[in-house]
């Protein structure tokens, strides 16, 4: 082991193991216990990373309470520490960790609430893109025969979540100052997550619309995506769906049939 490894490995291991003694080679000017001082670093690591997770998962925290969240987040940090100093990138795997965290098993909806919150953070930091102009949309919509073969490129911040729990209602109930009211959680809900200006919108979305948009995101044509949506929901309304996407500036490229992919 190199001299550098002999220093860093025990220090790093000590940071991760609260019950392990402080690493060797530490000194204090007054011969006080170096372990007490080493604990400042241990504490900083956990508190700062728990704080970063709490910032990104505020509803998850509020659903389980601060103490439980601290415990769960701490276990996650020790099991799956950040791999990058860019903390906006940290937490993609937190929802899956929560799903496997036995003490939280009683809250079956918790992993999906965490997934929704993670999509929200990702949408906030997603790439910018200009919505297509009204003039272009108007001219395209005047050629309805082209619609079935048209592909749309949706805003980079747009994502979807379909859950067997009422995740959007649960999330929305925690947005105001008022204490959340009781709600039926065993109900399927889908969410559309999309940045608009400085805000990230979380919009309740019928499952068929969510499936339609997911297909568009993978490059399906409007015709194929609409057919799939109509199969599960005969009342699926393409016009209304497109109007809503346009209103939110969510369409960033409109590719009629025959147009080369961008």
């Amino acid at each position: 082991m190199s001299a550098a490894a002999a220093f860093f490995a025990p220090f790093a291991a000590g940071l991760r193991a609260p019950n392990r003694p402080a690493p060797p080679g530490l000194t204090t000017w007054n011969d006080s216990d170096p372990g007490v001082r080493f604990d400042v670093y241990r504490n900083n690591v956990v508190v700062s990373l728990v704080g970063a997770l709490a910032d990104g998962f505020p509803v998850t925290q509020s659903l389980v309470g601060e103490d439980f969240f601290l415990w769960m987040a701490r276990e996650y940090i020790l099991a799956e520490p950040p791999r990058s100093p860019v903390l906006a990138e940290y937490g993609d795997s937190f929802p899956a960790f929560i799903a496997g965290f036995e003490p939280a098993a009683g809250l079956a909806y918790l992993p999906d609430v965490a997934r929704l919150e993670r999509l929200r953070v990702r949408a906030y930091h997603a790439a910018d893109a200009e919505a297509v102009s009204t003039a272009l949309l108007t001219s395209q919509l005047q050629r309805p025969e082209q619609l079935p073969g048209t592909r749309l490129q949706l805003h980079p911040s747009l994502s979807l979540l379909s859950s067997s729990h009422a995740v959007v209602s649960i999330w929305a109930a925690h947005q105001g100052a008022a204490p959340p009211r009781a709600l039926e959680v065993e109900r399927q809900e889908s969410a559309l997550v999309l940045r608009s200006g400085d805000d990230v919108l979380i919009l309740p979305t019928p499952p068929a619309t969510a499936a339609f948009l997911s297909l568009l995101k993978t490059g399906a044509t409007l015709g194929d995506a609409t057919a799939a949506a109509l199969e599960s929901a005969p009342d699926f309304d393409l016009t209304q769906c497109l109007a809503s996407l346009i209103r939110h500036g969510a369409i960033v490229a409109w590719q009629p049939p025959g147009d080369p992919a961008p």
Binding site: A3, A4, F7, F8, A9, F11, A12, L15, G25, Y41, N44, V45, S48, L49, A52, P81, P82, R83, S84, P85, L87
Partner: peptide, 25 residues
Amino acid sequence: AWSSHGGAFFNDLLPIPYDTASLER
């Protein structure tokens, strides 16, 4: 200071010994 080891990021500014090995690094 240092903040990463073995691919993990600690999100804290951790201390180093002030010796020639640290100086060179």
